[in-house]
């Protein structure tokens, strides 16, 4: 499948951004933990957390971009996304990770690890939409 276009840089990854969890609790983006996402998805009723394993990370013709191929969910659906190299994903048990953590830290002041093949990222799907 063709990769989806790179999104523009969203403001909520900036260090200090206030994030509201599903139970109403407010946390800074840099303080979020794996449990926060899991519990929020459980409360929401409409969203389901999926495990998305990084299978490939390739360069992109677009500047400062990479194409990441994930295996999503229990059926390991193959999904490719084109993202800016500083775009952070939340890795289970590890926290924010990007293809270029130095650039993420430079732009967002968000402490970040290097996203690598085999990392399991948090992603969402809508559940039971019939």
């Amino acid at each position: 499948a063709a990769p989806t276009p790179a999104p523009s840089l969203p403001p909520y990854f900036m260090k200090g951004s206030i994030i509201q969890l599903a139970d109403g609790e407010l946390k800074r983006v840099e303080d979020l933990r794996t449990e926060d996402f899991i519990q929020s998805a459980e409360i929401s009723g409409e969203l389901k957390i999926d495990s998305s394993t990084v299978e490939r990370i390739d360069g992109s013709p677009a500047p400062n971009s990479a194409i990441i191929q994930f295996a999503v969910g229990e059926h390991r659906v193959q999904v490719s996304v084109e993202v800016l190299v500083e775009y952070p994903f939340f890795v289970f048990g590890q926290g924010w990770s990007s293809c270029c953590p130095d650039r993420t830290t430079q732009l967002f002041e968000l402490s970040c690890a290097k996203l690598s093949v085999g990392d399991v990222c948090i992603s969402l799907t809508l559940k039971n939409l019939k």
């Binding site: 969203p10 403001p11 909520y12 990854f13 951004s17 206030i18 994030i19 509201q20 969890l21 599903a22 407010l26 983006v29 979020l32 926060d36 996402f37 929020s40 929401s44 969203l47 957390i49 999926d50 998305s52 994930f70 999503v72 969910g73 059926h75 659906v77 999904v79 996304v81 994903f89 939340f90 948090i122 992603s123 969402l124 799907t125 809508l126 559940k127 039971n128 939409l129 019939k130």
Partner: peptide, 25 residues
């Protein structure tokens, strides 16, 4: 008068990508 600056609050799901097409169970 100086109005207090409001701090934006973002919903948690904004930070998580939707990576898979929706599937029925």
């Amino acid at each position: 008068n100086v109005e207090p600056r409001s701090v934006p609050v973002f919903p948690w799901h904004s930070l998580v990508p939707f990576l898979a097409p929706t599937q029925s169970d």
